[in-house]
Amino acid sequence: MNKKIKRPAADILLICAALALALIIYLSGAKKEAGVNVEVRLGGKIYAVLSLDEDAELDIDGKCTLKIEGGAAKIVKSDCPNGLCAAHRPISRSGEAIVCLPNGVSVKITGGGADFVI
């Protein structure tokens, strides 16, 4: 008799536990944005996403060469006529970008921090 009276209380406790667990699962999904990446786009489409922590050199469709070194990204070579992209200083902070308009290439630091840098 006694046990039967306690059942609803136990159910409520379980439902609460389920909701709490749901909240934890939901919130953990939001924490995935860590890690700083270099997003490379060609003609607006994502061409490559590299880690800023890893030194790398990327040939972008034969048009520009991207170099990641010591936690900064820079366009080291470009076949465009004005060369503004290769003259751009290295970028390392979230939201910063280097663009080569003639080639339709953009290189942007993403993940954490600013959404855009203007």
Binding site: L19, L21, I25, Y26
Partner: peptide, 13 residues
């Protein structure tokens, strides 16, 4: 049941 409910709740939102 609790685990299943948790996954369903999280998925719905």
């Amino acid at each position: 049941a609790v685990l299943a409910a948790a996954v369903i709740f999280a998925g719905c939102a």
